[in-house]
């Protein structure tokens, strides 16, 4: 019963948060010194044609009414224009892009495979890499290996992702001709090409992010190793592998999982810079393109979607944190 109430409360909270984000996005872009209808008026533009375009696109109402129409569309769908040329956008309607002649929901669905391919592949890679090097570093504390791994990870933490990415493209793409210089091939089209195009972005993201996990894991590991139950386990004569595998690692992974959930959520919402650097047409690229073209429905739709993913990840982390670590149940978060 308490669990149900907790979950219900969080869900309502999520919806409120998403509405606030939609509202802010709408308000900000409405006050921009621009006029989306003017951009699609054609050349030469006359006042009559401008007014017609505005009415058709639904920009002839005050912005708060537009916001309400938009929100309504998400739950009940909406129709643009009238007669045989009318555009029907069924629920959940996140708006319609007149520039791309496509409903925003469709645009988002089209881009999800790209963004998710980048994010999930990179996340698995950096988690494995980060945790294993962290554990090795902690176990070999003070040795040359430890110092080497720590130095590399310090460099990884300090290097900007776009710089590493661009240098990677130059080295492996142009100079060595080993991997494609960008682009994306759907998994369904050719799994090999899919993998081939994703290797470099995965490695770059993994290098940057693994560094954080290496350091986090090592720190946690060192702390846990001094705890009583590890000493007890050792004293009981359990093998080192078992001690570490069964007892230490489990406790180390709780904070790692927390950070991981949030990082993955952020990446699933669209990685603007990574997608730009690797010319991948995911959600981040869609958003950047929409901002450049003042395509308001797309901006709001994508923002809403990424916010949803991030907040969902946050929520999952909170809930699983409670499950993984009973001590955390008393306090929130």
């Amino acid at each position: 019963m308490r669990v149900a109430r907790f979950l219900g409360g969080r869900l309502i909270g999520m919806i409120i948060v998403l509405l606030i984000i939609t509202f802010i996005t709408y308000a900000i872009f409405y006050v921009l010194p621009s006029n989306p209808a003017q951009l699609s008026c054609g050349r030469p533009c006359t006042p009559d044609r401008l007014a017609q375009a505005k009415t058709f696109m639904g920009y002839d109402h005050p912005w708060w009414q537009q916001f309400l129409q938009y929100t309504r569309g998400i739950f009940f769908g909406r129709t643009f224009g009238a007669g045989p040329a009318a555009i029907d956008c069924s629920a959940p309607c996140f708006g319609y892009s007149f520039r791309l002649s496509t409903p925003v929901t469709q645009l988002i669905l089209d881009r999800i495979p790209v963004t998710f391919s980048i994010a999930i592949g990179a996340a698995i890679l950096w988690l494995v890499l980060g945790v294993s090097t962290g554990v090795i570093s902690a176990l070999r504390r003070g040795t040359a290996i430890d110092r080497l791994l720590m130095s590399i990870s310090m460099a990884g933490v300090s290097a900007p992702a776009y710089l590493v990415g661009l240098l990677g493209i130059l080295l492996f793409g142009f100079t060595l001709n080993m991997v494609p210089i960008g682009g994306y091939v759907p998994l369904t089209e050719s799994p090999v090409d899919w993998l081939w195009h994703l290797i470099l972005p995965w490695c770059v993201l993994a290098f940057i992010n693994a560094a954080i996990y290496t350091r986090l894991t090592r720190g946690q590991m060192l702390e846990v190793m001094t705890e009583d139950y590890i000493r007890t386990a050792r004293a009981k004569g359990l093998s080192e592998t078992r001690t570490i595998g069964r007892h230490a690692l489990r406790n180390v992974l709780i904070p790692v999982a927390t950070v991981f959930g949030l990082d993955l959520g952020g990446l699933l919402g669209g990685a603007v810079i990574t997608e730009k650097v690797f010319s991948m047409q995911g959600l981040g690229a869609l958003l950047l393109d929409a901002v450049g073209n003042l395509d308001l429905p797309v901006i709001v739709g994508v923002t809403l979607f990424s916010a949803f993913v991030i907040i969902l990840a946050n929520f999952v982390v909170d809930v699983s944190y409670g499950v993984l670590d009973p001590r955390a149940r008393t306090g929130t978060r």
Binding site: G13, I21, P33, V291, T303, S306, A307, I310, T332
Partner: peptide
Amino acid sequence: SRATDVVFGFPGLIFMIAVGAI
């Protein structure tokens, strides 16, 4: 908690571009 969610969920880059124009 909720305010944190809003800030996390909101794309800072987009905010920056929009406000920079205003």
